[in-house]
Amino acid sequence: MSSFQKLTSNRISINGTKIKNNLLVISSGIPSLDYVVVYPSGAIFVVEEDVLGNYSRILNKYFLAEGIICNHKIFIASADEVPQDIVKELPQPCSTSVEDEVTRPSQNFDKMKIAWRYEGLSQVESSFGSDANFGHHFDLSKHIDAETIEKSNISYCYLDSSKIYSKGFKNGIYFTLLNKISDVIKDLKTSNMNKNFLRISIPSLGSPTWMAMDCDDNTHENYGQDLLKFIYCLRTIVRDTNVAVFITIPSHLFDDDHLMKRLLYSVDNAVKLESFTGSSKEANPVYKDYHGLFHITKLSSLYSMVPFVPPSLDMAFKLKRKKFVIEKLHLPPELQESSEREQDDITSIPYTCGGLKKKNIDF
């Protein structure tokens, strides 16, 4: 008789979750993002914001909208804007059949100018697969009505000006937020934690607004240390709980280049959004079908030896009229034929020892 015994999970299934590696896994609200990044409970998900922060706010809205549809408890903390304003423009759920327009290849396409042998091959699939029984689809062109928002279990925390001093933090705003999160988690435990899930959203953590609230005479000398301590303490609080944390960080505003690298040690999943807006890549025809690059900087490996690695790490994102999509990045082929290119190849060949070019040599 074999001594191997399969470990069965003793967790109660919660709406909007599934069990993987004995952990509850939630959806981010974006099917393509769920495919490349596994989001377990008790984990911290960090998004390095794009320069303008437009696309990172969209990811945050998807995260909150998915929680509202699944009847999860939500906690929103912000110092840059009023948290109540964030939920006013959450995308409305829709069926899988009501999706944005997808450009499909025409059946009567023109024959290829070169490599005609490849005409019968299927085209490269850029989109990622999705689990039809997990997560929801949302329409960015429509918003969840105010009545549904009011009925949802949402807690808000507007960090305007905290003058609370603590022994471990120079900036009291971090200490205040940690106490608020601890209280929300305690309330979740007392209300039978196994029957609900908590989603925590902290947009633009560590922005200049947070720095302006430094209580240490505005010296900001320990600004990076406070941010690292906060992430480490937050990780210890949410570990082994039915809590998921979604944080966006404007890393491009940090003076210390090593701060983000040190911060990644205390988080579970981290991605970076590189927008083409205002950059030289915006006019590059290679990226004409995309709005930015999607970089995975860290993947979680909770309860497993190695993390899940997506089939491709070269990814880009595009914002359509109704949805946000992450796809594999495929460079277009070089289809242009010109005599200039052939002539450039010939003239680039150096002279031989006989003083003649290669084109003048007869074989």
Results as ranks from 00 to 15, higher is better:
residue 66 E to S: 12
residue 141 S to D: 14
residue 170 K to E: 14
residue 290 Y to N: 05
residue 149 I to H: 05
residue 39 Y to M: 15
residue 108 N to L: 11
residue 28 S to N: 11
residue 32 S to M: 02
residue 167 K to V: 07
residue 223 Y to H: 13
residue 269 N to A: 08
residue 47 V to T: 15
residue 83 P to Q: 07
residue 63 F to Y: 14
residue 149 I to K: 07
residue 22 N to I: 07
residue 75 F to K: 06
residue 358 K to M: 13
residue 230 F to E: 04
residue 36 V to M: 03
residue 55 Y to D: 03
residue 190 T to K: 15
residue 224 G to Y: 15
residue 84 Q to D: 09
residue 249 I to R: 06
residue 182 S to Q: 14
residue 282 E to L: 08
residue 106 S to L: 10
residue 51 V to M: 12
residue 221 E to G: 01
residue 194 N to S: 14
residue 122 S to H: 07
residue 160 D to T: 14
residue 241 T to G: 00
residue 286 V to S: 03
residue 237 I to F: 10
residue 239 R to Y: 11
residue 329 L to D: 00
residue 95 S to Q: 12
residue 95 S to N: 14
residue 95 S to D: 14
residue 6 K to P: 00
residue 306 V to Q: 15
residue 311 P to Y: 05
residue 14 I to T: 07
residue 145 D to H: 11
residue 27 S to K: 03
residue 331 L to S: 09
residue 10 N to C: 04
residue 9 S to L: 06
residue 230 F to A: 07
residue 140 L to H: 01
residue 204 S to R: 12
residue 316 A to V: 07
residue 31 P to I: 06
residue 78 S to D: 13
residue 24 L to W: 03
residue 277 T to K: 14
residue 39 Y to L: 15
residue 140 L to Y: 01
residue 195 K to I: 01
residue 167 K to E: 15
residue 175 F to R: 03
residue 353 C to E: 14
residue 48 E to Y: 12
residue 43 A to Y: 06
residue 153 N to L: 06
residue 41 S to C: 11
residue 190 T to E: 10
residue 138 F to M: 05
residue 20 K to L: 13
residue 121 L to C: 09
residue 41 S to V: 05
residue 257 D to P: 10
residue 262 R to H: 12
residue 320 K to C: 09
residue 219 T to M: 08
residue 16 G to H: 07
residue 92 Q to T: 06
residue 63 F to L: 08
residue 87 V to N: 05
residue 362 D to T: 15
residue 18 K to T: 08
residue 36 V to H: 00
residue 220 H to Q: 13
residue 153 N to G: 00
residue 44 I to A: 05
residue 183 D to W: 06
residue 252 H to V: 09
residue 135 G to H: 02
residue 131 D to T: 06
residue 107 Q to V: 13
residue 93 P to G: 08
residue 238 V to W: 02
residue 215 C to L: 13
residue 263 L to S: 05
residue 123 Q to G: 12
residue 137 H to F: 15
residue 291 H to T: 02
residue 227 L to R: 00
residue 262 R to F: 13
residue 62 Y to R: 01
residue 172 G to N: 04
residue 266 S to G: 07
residue 9 S to W: 02
residue 165 Y to K: 15
residue 282 E to P: 00
residue 29 G to N: 04
residue 263 L to H: 05
residue 85 D to E: 15
residue 183 D to M: 09
residue 177 L to H: 00
residue 24 L to M: 09
residue 67 G to A: 11
residue 116 W to K: 14
residue 301 S to C: 09
residue 326 I to H: 02
residue 97 S to T: 12
residue 30 I to E: 02
residue 171 N to C: 10
residue 19 I to C: 05
residue 261 K to N: 14
residue 237 I to M: 15
residue 186 K to V: 00
residue 235 R to G: 14
residue 4 F to M: 08
residue 320 K to G: 15
residue 248 T to M: 01
residue 231 I to S: 03
residue 328 K to H: 05
residue 117 R to H: 12
residue 126 S to T: 11
residue 177 L to T: 11
residue 30 I to W: 00
